[in-house]
Amino acid sequence: MAPSSLRPLPQIVVLGTGGTIAGTATGDPSLPGYTAGVLGVEDLLKEVPTLGSLAQIQTEQVANVDSKDMTFAVWTRLAGRVMHWLAQPSIQACVITHGTDTLEETAYFLSLVLPLDKPVVLTAAMRPATALNADGPQNLLDAVRVATHPEARGIGVVCVLHGVVHAARDVAKINTHAVEAFSSGERGPLGEIEGEHLRLWRRTPPESGAPFALPAAEAWPRVELLSNVAGTDGAVVRCLVESPCLHPRLRGLVVAGTGGGTVSRELEAALEAAAAQGVSVKVASRVGPLRGGDDDGLSAVKLRVRLLLELAAIGTPLRP
């Protein structure tokens, strides 16, 4: 018997949150109709029997939702369970199954609240588990390979999809149907997984200010996301700031601006008035990540995630 075969398998945990990877077809499995978040994480692992040769795996079902329905309450619970498992010396890494719609937001959120010493690998699928050409099993296998690979130590939070390793900060969904639906933009991915081999080309530096404190499920501030488009004025901003439904809970506004993060003159005036009333205002670009400044490289949706945690951490007073 070879000496390597005597080594104990690494121990990891796989947490399920639902998504298309856990979806089932409502009719003909060759057609696109399906319901997300049906199967449990144990069912997903049964479809990849070779996982047992890679790791000793424990599982936990944190949620089972379509990721378009992701909530702060699920985020809080998910992060708490990841922290619980990774605090155990025997656990080497955590893999999370997730839906594709908000995968990039959840990944970036986790990168801001978790320590970076053990890998946290998110994976997903563009086709439901019952599809004839389901991509979930291979993505799950690749995710476990990355999570258990010695080179992944200290890699932080990453997304593994279609054989590609993406940084949480950079990954974005760019296609609604192709299996190669994610990109890392100009920076490019961190690496790739090919068979048993992991090739890492770069690593991402720690996020400034991280790890942020994890907000309680009921203590998340309200931060709205707007976009600057032709004909935009300041009416929506004024309504948000003055709305009795949101006041005084509205704590921040993120705007996906045109070009290099520009906004119309009327919208700019309304944003300045909102800031004067204590609302934190941030501007990204709807074209792509801006360069320079503390928010370098963040899309509007990720800038919102960061602002949520910044406001929760500093305890910005609610407006009178």
Rank of each mutant, 00 (worst) to 15 (best):
Ser184Lys: 10
Val223Trp: 01
Gly195Asn: 09
Val157Asn: 06
Val165Tyr: 03
Ala213Ile: 05
Cys245His: 14
Leu9Ile: 13
Ala93Tyr: 06
Val160Arg: 06
Leu122Thr: 12
Ala235Lys: 01
Glu242Phe: 09
Pro128Val: 04
Gln88Trp: 01
His98Lys: 06
Glu180Phe: 02
Ser243Gly: 08
Arg145Ser: 09
Leu267Ser: 04
Leu110Ala: 10
Val74Lys: 01
Val158Leu: 11
Arg306Ala: 11
Leu303Asp: 12
Arg249Gln: 14
Glu151Leu: 15
His98Leu: 07
Ser227Asn: 03
Glu180Arg: 13
Asp296Trp: 13
Ala217Leu: 01
Arg304Gln: 14
Glu272Met: 04
Glu104Tyr: 00
Ala181Arg: 06
Glu194Asp: 13
Pro244His: 09
Ala79Trp: 04
Ser90Asn: 05
Val74Asn: 07
Arg286Ser: 13
Val164Ile: 15
Arg169Ala: 12
Trp201Arg: 14
Pro49Trp: 08
Gln11Glu: 15
Ser208Thr: 08
Gly136Gln: 04
His98Phe: 02
Gly257Lys: 00
Phe72Val: 00
Ala55Ser: 08
Ile174Asn: 05
Val254Arg: 02
His197Cys: 09
Leu200Ala: 11
Ala172Glu: 12
Ala2Thr: 09
Leu267Val: 04
Gln138Arg: 15
Pro244Phe: 07
Val95Thr: 11
Ala312Ile: 00
Leu318Ile: 04
Cys94Met: 08
Ala152Val: 06
Gly19Cys: 02
Pro128Phe: 06
Leu161Met: 15
Val13Ala: 08
Gly260Leu: 05
Glu266Ser: 14
Leu190Asp: 06
Leu226Ala: 11
Cys159Lys: 00
Lys68Ser: 15
Glu151Thr: 13
Gly259Pro: 08
Ala167Thr: 12
Ala210Glu: 00
Val157Met: 10
Val287Pro: 05
Leu45Gln: 03
Val160Pro: 06
Leu200Ile: 14
Arg127Asp: 03
Val144Asn: 03
Pro244Gly: 06
Ala147Gly: 12
Ala143Lys: 08
Leu51Lys: 02
Thr100Ala: 01
Pro137Cys: 04
